[in-house]
């Protein structure tokens, strides 16, 4: 039976509301975009529709940040490798935890979940990372994030909804743990894995706090990521001729709003480019007659 393409009233209202909310979400992005091409004075007055007093000042300023190119490379590297590692590790762990034969299943599951709630602060974490030699090392970006409880929970819940018959029939055929994982679980879990890919990739792209703590001094070399450089630039970009008096305390160095907006746009744009490619995995139904198949 074909679904008719006729537009019903509830359908129309649905589309209208979605349209409204989409506008609410899209306009701020446009606002950021046009403001990043306007002069600070115009921004202060209010720029709402198109750039006023067009200037490339903010972007040329960004382009002059020292170490920019290598940081972009590092950010891409950590996003790609980190995402792959996290998806593989977290999904495999989730699969193991979902297996009904796992002994002490509840305990082991909780072993992972509790990690979400326990955090002793950054000093002990810093000391641990330092002790295992991950300081000034690229791996500090991706190893700690490889096994994440939140993703394990999501994937495990998803796996448990896969009909058990599929796994059992594979076992009858003599498939081992790894083969079932690779050939059955992974392909069927594409929607949730796509979710995880998006979440992890965005996280890796945006994180700078690990850079700040663990990449120190001259041995950090070229290991800084883009976000950290932008964050530093945000703190420091001010005309230095006015001899800022220290009596003013911290946080005196602030950058103009246009610069912040340009930075934001540069950060968000790559995400939006890659995003649609992941979309098809969680907008199309795949479980069609899976049991029979």
């Amino acid at each position: 039976m074909e679904s008719k393409k006729r537009l019903t009233v509830p359908g129309a209202i649905n589309i209208l509301i979605l349209l409204l909310f989409t506008f609410l979400c899209l306009y701020p992005m446009w606002y950021i975009f046009i403001n990043s091409w306007s002069s600070p004075a115009a921004v202060n007055r209010g720029v709402y529709f198109i750039p006023l007093e067009f200037t490339t000042e903010a972007y040329t300023n960004l382009g002059q940040i020292p170490g920019l190119t290598s940081s972009i490379f590092i950010s891409f590297a950590r996003t790609i490798s980190g995402t792959i590692l996290t998806v593989l590790c977290s999904s495999f762990t989730a699969y193991l935890l979902a297996d009904k034969f796992l002994p002490a299943k509840k305990f082991l599951y909780r072993f992972f979940i509790v990690t979400m709630y326990v955090n002793a602060g950054f000093i002990p974490y810093y000391l641990t990372i330092s002790a295992i030699g991950l300081r000034n090392n690229f791996l500090v970006y991706i190893l700690p994030a490889a096994v994440q409880a939140y993703f394990i929970i999501l994937i495990k819940t998803y796996i448990e909804s896969i009909p058990g018959e599929m796994v059992e029939s594979a076992e009858m055929d003599g498939a081992g743990i790894f083969r079932i994982y690779a050939q059955i679980i992974m392909p069927l879990s594409k929607p949730i894995l796509a979710c995880i890919v998006v979440f992890t990739a965005v996280n890796q792209w945006n994180t700078w706090s690990d850079d700040m703590f663990f990449m120190q001094g001259r041995n950090a070399g070229n290991l800084h990521c883009l976000q950290y450089l932008l964050y530093q630039n945000l703190q420091s970009n001010v005309v230095t001729s006015v001899g800022a008096g220290a009596a003013a305390g911290a946080a005196m160095k602030v950058s103009s709003m246009t610069l912040r907006m340009a930075m934001s746009f540069v950060t968000i744009f790559p995400i939006l480019c890659v995003y649609p490619f992941m979309q098809r995995y969680f907008t199309k139904g795949i479980m069609l007659g899976a049991v029979k198949g």
Binding site: P28, M261, Y275, P276
Partner: peptide
């Protein structure tokens, strides 16, 4: 398109 656009605010940092 709706799905992509409505995800955008999540990427905007709180400073912005």
């Amino acid at each position: 398109v709706v799905q992509t656009c409505t995800s955008i605010p999540n990427f905007i940092s709180w400073v912005l």
